[in-house]
């Protein structure tokens, strides 16, 4: 099968392992874009989702924002930002952040809403302060779902960050775009394999974080809802 041959020859070519277009550099760039976009999206989405979910207000507004954000085409948005803002990090970050915010925001909101109200009532009745109710009672229970929102955001960013190459940026998309123009399918397949591998690594990382951060008492209960 030629895809496998492509993969094999791409990774066995020494030239692909060094220099500014080497695999380590490109993977590093891709990770950088991903972490930046995920960081910004989480910095916006998590607090807003936690707060609106905790108070139960603004759910409809959130749904509206999420639907609108989802409707924006990432690729087109990037090109648009590129001509508006010129060459720079912003045209790449904006579409990635717009892409990542809906899953984080909506899932966090829903995760907080779906927390059983009885323990929350019990916690308040015991005289627990409101911030403690949020962070010690609701958050631990909502955590698996919140993580799943972050996870799907991360995976979408990893896969979409490839388009950055179209506006002269690096990352793994470089191989795909360059390979496309050079009719070098070996490069395309190699790049695609790397992106897929990174997405799977991301899945694995989130699984590990879930194992470490989620209490066994919660993990067991939400085992059925881990679908992604």
């Amino acid at each position: 099968m030629n895809v496998l041959n492509f993969i094999n020859s791409f990774f066995s070519d020494n030239a692909h392992w060094q220099g500014y277009d080497g695999i380590p550099t490109r993977v590093g760039e891709h990770i950088q874009y991903t972490l930046m976009a995920l960081g910004i999206a989480a910095a916006v989405g998590l607090p807003v989702g936690l707060l609106t979910g905790h108070t139960g207000r603004g759910g409809n507004t959130l749904a509206l924002i999420a639907t609108s954000a989802r409707a924006l085409p990432s690729f087109g948005l990037m090109v648009l930002m590129f001509i508006l803002l010129g060459l720079g990090m912003a045209p790449v970050m904006i579409p990635l952040v717009v892409l990542a915010i809906p899953p984080i925001l909506v899932t966090t909101y829903e995760a907080m809403r779906s927390v059983d109200p009885a323990p929350v009532d019990a916690a308040r009745g015991m005289g627990m302060a409101e911030t403690a109710v949020l962070f010690r009672v609701e958050l631990p229970v909502a955590l698996p779902l919140i993580l799943s929102g972050l996870r799907s955001a991360a995976i979408q960013i990893v896969s979409t960050a490839t388009i950055a190459a179209y506006v002269s940026f690096g990352g793994l998309g470089r191989y795909i775009i360059d390979g496309l123009y050079q009719r070098n399918y070996e490069k395309v397949v190699g790049g695609a394999t790397l992106v897929a591998a990174m997405a799977l690594t991301t899945l694995g990382l989130f699984w590990a974080v879930g194992r470490l951060a989620v209490s066994p008492g919660v993990r067991r209960r939400s085992a059925g809802g881990a679908a992604g």
């Binding site: 059983d116 009885a118 019990a122 009745g125 015991m126 005289g127 631990p140 008492g217 919660v218």
Partner: peptide, 18 residues
Amino acid sequence: LRRSMGYVIQNAGLFQHR
């Protein structure tokens, strides 16, 4: 006030993560 009163509810309302 609340910490000076025990509070028991239907279905217990236990913290499932503890």
